[in-house]
Design a protein around this nucleic acid. Sequence first.
DNA 1: GTCTATACTAAGATAGAC
DNA 2: GTCTATCTTAGTATAGAC
Lengths: 192, 192
Amino acid sequence: MSTPARDRLVDAAVEAFAERGYGATTTRDIASRAGMSPAAVYVHHATKEDLLFAISLRGHQNALTTLTEAAAHGATPVERVASMVRAFSVWHAEHSRTGRVVQYEFGALTPEHRAVIADLRRRMEQRMRDALAKGVDEGVFEVGDLRGTARAVLSLSVDLVRWFEPGGAHTPEELGALHADLAVRMLRPLPA
Amino acid sequence: MSTPARDRLVDAAVEAFAERGYGATTTRDIASRAGMSPAAVYVHHATKEDLLFAISLRGHQNALTTLTEAAAHGATPVERVASMVRAFSVWHAEHSRTGRVVQYEFGALTPEHRAVIADLRRRMEQRMRDALAKGVDEGVFEVGDLRGTARAVLSLSVDLVRWFEPGGAHTPEELGALHADLAVRMLRPLPA
DNA sequence: GTCTATACTAAGATAGAC
DNA sequence: GTCTATCTTAGTATAGAC
């Protein structure tokens, strides 16, 4: 049984951090968005950074799960990478405010918390490298720099959070389809 | 004749904002990095936001110039886009701290300053769309969504600033070459 | 153009009642 | 578990001497 107040505070903090940045957000602002007094924050979260870590952990875990589940779909390397990129872009578009916080406020975490998050990030990059390597092995992808290319493919999705606004020119699904297509085209062998 | 102190403060602010975020940076920190007292800041910049705007303006102008000059190189659409992406990625890698500030602290600007910067951003995206459109016209590129694809191509470069560290695994030139190759591959027509 | 000193405001976090 | 009230610290910005 979880306490709803704890989650309401996390949600309020996501909005505030995404809008104003972690450093510029006050605990009073978070409390007021959650409909509570400033003091109530500290019943549920020891510090402001604790709130940031809760957001970052939940966000990275969700994104990693999304990527992992998408990797299980698709029988061929092309289908697998397309599925991963599509799902990853849709996730970042549908959770663009959470995404902005987890991507841009990494440096505001304590060293201990940073280490936990860095490990999740490494696992995401590893998932993509594995998918690319499989395609190279089967001869359907041509990749010079595996690490750099995997990072570039993920960049298409991650960079969404910098500018995406719900209700804008593209839906999450449209962006997912566009990025999946572009990613596969990046990987296909050059014509001889 | 410019005052060196003004520029020293801007440079100090770039370091501080990139490291801690705009909201979490104190004017005392900026002053101390520039080797001055807190009061000296206000002789050269009216407010902390004024410093941010100076950084953002200079950064966006430099990036736009880089993109424009690169677009003049290359006789064919493929060479032109490769030149633009290479130069844009090299710029973001060589100025990753400035890039981080200008990309991530856009929302911290005043509405008036935001409008100025937004205009420069629109012009960058327009430059890339023009380059893609030229290739489509000549039949060497196949692009479904011009706006989305131009943004995705630029994302490869911009997203560098999120993780790039000087002295890391890749040099700016290596990343420029990688991204130029990936961008051109994204645009080439699918095999029939 | 830089300093020391400080006014003024607001931040993070806690105490103690209910 | 939430509140009001408040402690303590630190922030932005300014005044006035040099």
